[in-house]
Structures are given as C-alpha cells and as structure tokens.
Design a protein around this nucleic acid. Sequence first.
DNA 1: TAAAATGATTCACCTGTTGAATGATTCTGT
DNA 2: ACAGAATCATTCAACAGGTGAATCATTTTA
Lengths: 156, 156
Amino acid sequence: MESTDPPRPKRTAFLLSQLGALASARFAERTRELGLTPSDAGVLRLLGRSPGLSQRSLADRLGAVPSRVVPLIDSLETRGLVARVRSSADRRNYELRLTAEGTKVLGALRGIAERHEAEILAPLTSEQSAQLGILLARLASAHALDTDLHRDTRPA
Amino acid sequence: MESTDPPRPKRTAFLLSQLGALASARFAERTRELGLTPSDAGVLRLLGRSPGLSQRSLADRLGAVPSRVVPLIDSLETRGLVARVRSSADRRNYELRLTAEGTKVLGALRGIAERHEAEILAPLTSEQSAQLGILLARLASAHALDTDLHRDTRPA
DNA sequence: TAAAATGATTCACCTGTTGAATGATTCTGT
DNA sequence: ACAGAATCATTCAACAGGTGAATCATTTTA
C-alpha cells in the first residue's frame, strides 16, 4: 500500500473519456430497447425539429458523410418511421419527414433521454448536477462543440 | 428567436458523451504521433505499472477479450516495445514486459497525457478544473468505473 | 446549350471487435 | 499416477460502423 499521490489533478481528461463512453453505452442500451441505434435516434430527433431536410443537410448536421446517411434512412424507411419524398423544387433532393409512427417513436425517445439523464446524474445532488452542467457547457463551447448535436461544418 | 427554455437541466448527459468523445479523439491524435493507438498506450501504461502480466490478466484489466490482446501484443512486440517471455512457473503463460525502448515510449506517453489534460481543461480556471475533477470522480466511483483504467471483472 | 456543381447511391475497403474452436499445459480428485 | 476438467494463447470467420472514390440524374452557371 502506498499513500496516494499528493498533487494529482492529472486524471480529469481521462475520467471525461471514460464517463463519456459510459454515458454513450448506457444510452445505446436504452435506445436498443426501442430497436434503434443511437444514430437512428439522432436522425429522428433532427427530423422532428427540422422536417423536410435533405439527406445532404442531414449528413452535415449529424457530422456524417452522405453515403453513411443512405443506409441509415433506408433502415428507418423500411421500418416506417421516416418517409422519403422527392422535392418538387429540386428533384435531386429528398425531403425527409417523420411518419406518424416515427413521431410516436420520437416521443418515446424523449422519455428515454430523460431517464438517461436522471440515471447518469443520480449520484450527484441537484446543485452538483447544475454545477457540472455549467462546467461541461463551458468546455463544449470553448472546444467548438455545437451545444445541440453536431454542427454544420461544410467547407463553403 | 425564442427565449431560451427556463428549466433545462436536460443535456448534461449528452454533453458528457460528446466531450468524452472529443477527449478520446484528441488523445488518439496525440498517440498517433508516436505511432501508437490508444489501446497500445493502455497496454504500455499497464505493463509499466505491472510488469510480468500474462495476456489473460492484461485482457481483464483492459476490459478486453484475450483474443483481442494477441494482435495488440504482436504489434508491440514487432516494434520492439514489449517482450513475450514464457513463464517458467507456468509455461502456458507469457510474462509481458516493456523493453528499454518500450519504457522510453512510455515516458513520452506520460508527457503526452499531461499536454492532453492541459489542452482539454484549458478553458477552465484551475478552481473550475478541480471542481470538475471532483464531480467526475464522484460519478465514476458511483457508476463503478474503476478510478484507474478498466476494472477486473472476471466471473469468479 | 455546354460545362461545372450538387444530391443520392453503390461499392470496395478498413478498423476494431467478438465468439467459437484448437492445441498446449497445468490442476483436480481419486 | 492418471483421466478429466480447467486455463492460456492462438487462429479464424464474421460483424458493425464508418470512409472515400466512382457513378448517375438533376440543376446551376456562364
């Protein structure tokens, strides 16, 4: 047994990595109960808030590449949660929209997100949670992480 | 423009996920400059602190499966950073040890970890960093994340 | 109207990972 | 001492998630 190292402010960044991985894994477990991947959840969330998005702009907001979006939407379309409609204004685009079922699932997703938040923060008092939220928000904005999800970073 | 939602303590868990992913990605960039993956770094770190480990117990501590450890050590051995020596006590085991070169690289890795920590926490004052460290440590221990790296979770 | 740009798609490919099967060695109980 | 069970390392086939290049249809630019 050693006495613990005296000046050790060293592990905070690693704790952040590990807790982030933990939070992501727990969230994935929860969405899996709805038959969704976290990516699916992100798509539904974005389409709920911005109906009519094209796959391209969806890709941008997700921080994904367009070819990645194709099978993602394929799968959601197959399950009847998202509809692809050709844009009449520009027939290269699809306008992506939630179906009624998709909207319903999005609602369930919001409940899941709430329980997720509660589970992760359960060990802290509400003051501590608030404090943590402030510190993390400061880090996120300083590191240019979009407060929302992923940010639009198209070249020009 | 909407006025911002009044009671929204909702995004903290997601911030945690995103910042964790950011921290992991930045650390990966740094280790890549040494020609190492984050997994490589974890192995070197563990072997530095526990020389003579078998692949099996290394797998346990990394939270990995033994078959995963094989190519990991293969690669480090090829690069001359780790040595496999059959245990004379139990010839099924290897005793894994850092080579002189491996020890040198581990030293470089410590420097990297320090700069990584500094970069991630740069947006915060030192009081805020300390506060964040406390909160994250509390979460980690409550969620049964080993304070160190991965924990030993063998069945029995 | 020809040429460039854009959206969606396909495809081959890569990385990291897992689980089952195998061979060598050691441990167990009788 | 020995048969059988357990353990370590290894191979292998397979999978998920993700990426970049090439392609086709459509629209924009000049």
